[in-house]
Computed example of a mutant assay.
Amino acid sequence: MPRFQFNVYDGNDSLDTEGTDLPDLRTAQIEAIAMAGGILRERARFIRLDDDWRMEVTDDTGLILFRLDFQIVGSAAISGQKK
């Protein structure tokens, strides 16, 4: 069974040193989306405009298989307001 690492980069990077055995890439995608949702929910009050957040999912050799990106971008209507 393949092992996948779920590495989070958000200014307080969290590298998955253990990994998770999952049957296939599709299952890893589902796990990554669920995991990202939980992490973002837990840290929601700390996320600000223009913050970047990403999760890279790698195989056991470190090859990036896919990534999830999250960014809050303010519109021009609020560009003069405090972030």
Rank of each mutant, 00 (worst) to 15 (best):
M35T: 13
T17S: 15
G37P: 06
F6N: 08
I47Y: 01
D52Q: 10
K82A: 15
A32Y: 00
A28W: 02
I64G: 01
D21T: 09
T27I: 06
L40V: 08
G80D: 13
I78E: 04
D21L: 10
D24L: 00
L68T: 05
W53Q: 03
A36T: 15
F70C: 13
T27R: 09
I78V: 10
S79G: 07
D24C: 08
M35S: 14
S79P: 06
R3L: 03
P23I: 02
I78Q: 10
L15W: 08
R67I: 03
T61K: 09
V57W: 07
S14D: 14
Y9W: 10
W53I: 12
T20L: 02
T58S: 10
D21Q: 07
T17M: 07
L25H: 06
M1C: 11
A77Q: 10
I39G: 04
D16Q: 02
L22G: 05
D59P: 14
F4G: 02
T17R: 11
T27S: 03
Q81D: 10
G37K: 13
S75N: 15
F70S: 03
L65D: 00
A34M: 12
A44L: 07
L40I: 15
L15H: 15
N7C: 05
D16T: 05
K83W: 12
R67A: 08
D69G: 14
R45G: 00
K83I: 12
I33G: 07
D16P: 02
D69E: 15
